[in-house]
């Protein structure tokens, strides 16, 4: 069988099946990701991107189809169990962090997956590692480790969330418009960090974005979803020649059908 980290086979999901509101959100969608590949995902509103992520994360059990992570069938596995190997980040920076807990406590909690046993959750050995990671963000957070997460700005929180999502070297990273709520400067910074971390740890990544520039510039492959199906799959030469203008035209053409 395939040894790719993520293999999605003929995934189908209907919302409110059997009612007048029935909505086919995923339509026999199949997708193979080679190890370490960074894929950007385009698609108009309601095309099924978040639904796809939710089935991979286990927040939603698909009607049909299979999801394999490193050869293991996780289609029906509990969400928190598969989270051992999957990191995720959403548009809203508030979703990934606990506001009433300190930065170091947040990191320690995310690190629970891979940390060695210790009586106290926050300890000196792990803290040295956290400090290094935070210093890499270049936001001065390494000196504010006892600050409550809720006091940080959206950009800082999203950067911290990114660290938390990748702190345990996941096999797969899912990013759902994770820079959309940030100002251009912060968005650029978080995007740069995302690429750096994914490359450094060789993490297979799916990134949803509505920004044509990012879609082409970041990663090595771009797919487009429409009505729950993949209607475009660009990589290599073809992708290198594509311009964001041409991509935008394609986007509207595919969307109109």
């Amino acid at each position: 069988m395939s040894s790719s980290p993520l293999s999605i086979q003929s995934l189908t999901h209907r919302f409110e099946a059997g009612t007048v509101n029935e909505k086919l959100a995923l339509d026999r969608l199949s997708l193979e990701l080679p190890a370490g590949q960074f894929v950007t995902v385009l698609g108009s509103n309601g095309s099924g991107k978040t639904t796809l992520f939710n089935t991979i994360l286990g927040k939603l059990i698909p009607d049909e189809g299979r999801i394999l992570l490193d050869g293991e069938d996780i289609t029906r596995q509990k969400d928190y169990k598969r989270a051992l190997n999957i990191g995720c980040l959403y548009q809203n920076p508030l979703r990934g962090t606990a506001p009433d807990m300190t930065i170091e406590e947040n990191l320690a909690l995310a690190y629970t997956r891979k940390a060695s046993r210790s009586f106290f959750a926050v300890n000196r050995r792990d803290n040295r590692y956290f400090r290094e990671l935070l210093a890499g963000l270049d936001m001065g957070l390494e000196n504010r480790m006892k600050t409550k997460m809720g006091l940080l700005s959206g950009g800082q929180r999203q950067a911290a969330s990114l660290l938390m999502a990748t702190i345990a070297q996941p096999k797969l990273l899912l990013l759902d418009e994770h820079t959309a709520a940030l100002d251009p400067g912060a968005a650029e910074k978080v995007m740069h960090l995302t690429e750096t971390i994914a490359r450094r740890d060789h993490i297979t990544t799916l990134m949803v974005t509505h920004d044509m520039d990012y879609a082409l510039r970041v990663g090595s492959r771009t797919i487009m979803l429409d009505s729950g199906r993949i209607v475009m799959d660009l990589s290599g030469e073809e992708r290198a020649r594509m311009t964001s203008g041409a991509l935008a035209e394609l986007f509207y053409a595919k969307g109109k059908r």
Binding site: N106, A110, T112, A121
Partner: peptide
């Protein structure tokens, strides 16, 4: 660790689940 996880559950349950 368990104590902190309980606190985090009250603060942001979704994040606790995402942390496996």
């Amino acid at each position: 660790r368990p104590g902190m996880a309980i606190r985090a559950t009250g603060d942001n349950e979704e994040m606790v689940r995402s942390s496996s």
